[in-house]
């Protein structure tokens, strides 16, 4: 099996998949801690449905790179979700459900009205579940992913203290002169970027798993923000690597295998937590 793995590593598309997988998992798991603590776990799911709609629009417009349409549409929706969430008439969870379901429905409608290939069910399936799209990345897509991941990581590290403050006590952060709205907006925009990147790895339906599972697993083991963030990043990267390698060797779908590994790790972390308490 090890020999087989080394044989597969000779292929550039396998190395691309591992590089992109590691970077996406790292970005998603770092931000996941903030999103879970801010009770924004479901925003990832909502935005991934919006990204599906964006993908359908990109298909209709026949753009050279889908990312140029999907990214702005998802970012705009992230800002809208944040603004609508502050609206007292439509509460946060209702806003997420409304936008995500509408985007999913319009996306599927557009794909049916303006099919870009003869295999519509295949297109929908690979967009929703990722299929093998992580193994079919071009060099340009890999570079775009590396640049976007680097931007996300740099923003997170440089604004770590402010993100920490906004995550735990937004009111106090505002009272101490920090413009919490700006940082909430920053978090929403970074989340949108991560979701768009993660669609290549696990598909739009499974995107939020990359965001929430590493954070939730890390929270079983550690209690401080710093330890949870580092543990979440490590678990996210390990799960992603294990998932991709298992999928390639065991002939299983990549996205669902990564999520299955994350669920397994979450279970192990729960058991370790119980053992620690006993």
């Amino acid at each position: 099996m090890i020999m087989k793995l080394f044989q597969y590593l000779q292929y550039p598309f396998v190395r691309y998949a591992l590089i992109v997988g590691v970077l996406i998992a790292l970005c998603a798991s770092l931000l996941g801690v903030t999103l879970v603590l801010k009770r924004f776990s479901f925003i990832g799911d909502g935005l991934s449905h919006v990204a599906f709609g964006g993908m359908a629009i990109a298909g209709v417009l026949q753009t050279a790179n889908d990312m140029f349409v999907v990214l702005p549409v998802t970012m705009l929706s992230a800002v809208l979700l944040l603004r609508t969430g502050q609206n007292k008439k439509i509460r946060g969870d209702a806003a997420i459900a409304m936008i995500s379901v509408a985007a999913l429905a319009f996306g599927y409608l557009l794909m049916n009205l303006f099919p870009t290939s003869s295999n519509l069910s295949g297109d929908v399936c690979s967009t929703l579940f990722g299929s093998t799209s992580i193994l079919t990345l071009s060099k340009k897509e890999v570079w775009l992913c590396i640049i976007l991941s680097a931007v996300v990581l740099a923003v997170f590290v440089l604004n770590y203290n402010r993100i920490f403050a906004v995550t735990f006590d937004e009111t106090f952060a505002q009272a101490s002169g920090m413009r919490a709205d700006r940082y909430n907006l920053l978090i929403a925009v970074i989340t949108a970027v991560i979701i768009v990147l993660a669609m290549n790895l696990v598909g739009s339906l499974l995107c939020s798993a990359l965001v929430i599972f590493p954070a939730l697993s890390a929270m079983r083991l550690y209690s401080s923000f710093r330890d949870v963030t580092v543990c979440s990043a490590v678990l996210g990267v390990i799960c992603s690597l294990l998932g991709i390698v298992t999928a390639i060797l065991a002939e299983t779908p990549v996205g669902s295998t990564i999520v299955a590994v994350q669920v397994l790790v979450f279970g192990i972390c729960c058991l370790l937590e119980k053992r620690k308490k006993a």
Binding site: R15, R226, V230, V237
Partner: peptide, 22 residues
């Protein structure tokens, strides 16, 4: 904290570099 995060990032970069160099 930043040190730990930077360490994680450097490790990931090394990991990615290893894959790209094989």
């Amino acid at each position: 904290m930043k040190k730990k995060i930077w360490c994680t990032l450097v490790c990931t970069a090394l990991l990615a570099g290893t894959f790209s160099c094989t």
